[in-house]
Simulated scan of single mutants.
Amino acid sequence: MPFSAGKIDWSRVVGRHQHWRIDDERLLAESASREIRARIKSGSVVEHVGDGLSPYGVRFTESEVDSVTVALLEVPEHHYFLAEDRSWVVVVSFEGDLDVLDRASA
């Protein structure tokens, strides 16, 4: 993915990009979970990485999306939720931005 100043350069990504600004933390977590659930394939896992405080990545399944997403979003950092095959990414910032990229869709 293209980066600029340490962030994803959304203007240069290839695929279908959607962006929302959500200031309510509960609604942000629910929205992120909904976007992940809409994309995860049965039998696959979601991989999570943070950009600061999380020392480890996390892998979780479809049945764990809601609980794991809410727990991870408690950590004040940028969160990257990726498909196992990298066909999509859901990015949540602690400033309230929710970005979704479907890489297979151009």
Rank of each mutant, 00 (worst) to 15 (best):
H78C: 08
G52L: 07
S63T: 14
G50V: 10
G50A: 06
V89H: 00
S54T: 13
H48N: 01
E35D: 02
V49Q: 13
G50H: 10
V58I: 09
T69R: 12
R34L: 11
I40F: 05
S33C: 13
W88P: 12
A83F: 06
V49R: 11
R39E: 07
F81I: 07
V75W: 07
L72V: 02
R34Q: 14
E47W: 12
E95N: 02
A38L: 10
G57R: 07
A71I: 05
E77N: 08
P55H: 10
A83E: 03
A83S: 11
G52M: 06
D85E: 12
D66A: 13
H78G: 04
R34W: 09
V68Y: 05
S31F: 00
R39M: 08
V65I: 15
S42Y: 04
R59C: 07
P55T: 13
D85V: 10
S93E: 11
L82K: 14
F60K: 02
V46E: 03
D97R: 09
H79V: 08
S63A: 15
V49H: 04
P76K: 14
V75F: 12
Y80R: 06
S54M: 12
G50D: 01
E84P: 04
D85K: 06
S31K: 11
S44G: 00
V46M: 05
H78F: 06
E74N: 13
L82S: 15
D85N: 13
A32G: 08
T61A: 11
E47F: 12
S33Y: 03
R34Y: 08
G96E: 05
G50C: 06
L73E: 03
V49Y: 12
T61N: 06
P55I: 09
F94V: 00
I40P: 01
L73V: 04
Y80L: 14
S54H: 05
L53C: 01
S31G: 05
V92T: 03
F60D: 03
D97H: 14
R34F: 07
E62R: 09
S31I: 00
E64T: 00
S42V: 05
H48D: 00
V90G: 01
E35H: 12
V46S: 02
A83K: 04
V46H: 04
T61D: 09
E95L: 08
V70E: 15
V70F: 15
